[in-house]
């Protein structure tokens, strides 16, 4: 088990600080580094509301102040995003890796269109305007999906 845990500080001012903090897992005590304390003091002095959350094993734990820079994990209030919430966010707000996977999906569809084109070309009995139009559609689909896949695979 790691002795470090990811912690996020968020304030109503819009300030957000993320980083690692030391955790004593036996007692459930997190010791925040100094830069968190600075943000907390600044929010307190400005009268802003704020929350400090620890992230562990997919769960979010609210941190409750104990003394100085020591905070307790509130295990009873831990929460985790449900499957449907995660699925919705994967579709509407994909992360970098997810966007790259979507790019690969577009390239797979592009390859399928090219294979479809070749299959159509070999199986058509004779050339006609209709056949040429459908071959053109296959090619256009492949080209468009290739470009879309390239944009999604940009990686930043």
């Amino acid at each position: 088990m790691s002795t470090l845990i990811k912690v996020t500080f968020s304030a109503t001012s819009g300030e957000e600080v993320s980083g690692k903090a030391q955790i004593d897992r036996a007692q459930g005590i997190v010791t925040l580094p100094a830069r968190f304390s600075i943000s907390i003091d600044r929010a307190r002095n400005a009268g802003e509301r704020f929350e400090i959350v620890a992230h562990d094993n997919g769960y979010k734990y609210p941190l409750v102040h104990q003394d100085a820079d020591r905070y307790a994990l509130e295990a009873a209030s831990r929460r985790r995003d449900g499957f449907w919430h995660q699925a919705w966010r994967a579709i509407t707000e994909p992360h970098k890796d997810q966007r790259q996977q979507y790019g690969r999906f577009a390239h797979t569809l592009s390859a399928a269109a090219m294979i479809g084109l070749a299959g159509y070309l070999k199986s058509m009995p004779a050339w006609s305007l209709h056949a040429a139009w459908e071959l053109f559609c296959f090619f256009l689909c492949g080209a468009v999906l290739f470009v879309v896949g390239a944009v999604l695979s940009k990686g930043d």
Partner: peptide, 30 residues
């Protein structure tokens, strides 16, 4: 008809993927 359906489907998939990509970049800034 098949060709038009193929183009419409491709357009819909492309538009959706590009929209999701732009949304993801805007939200996560990663």
């Amino acid at each position: 008809m098949f060709g038009v359906a193929l183009l419409v489907l491709t357009g819909a998939i492309s538009a959706f993927l590009l929209w999701a990509d732009r949304n993801g970049r805007r939200v996560h800034k990663d």
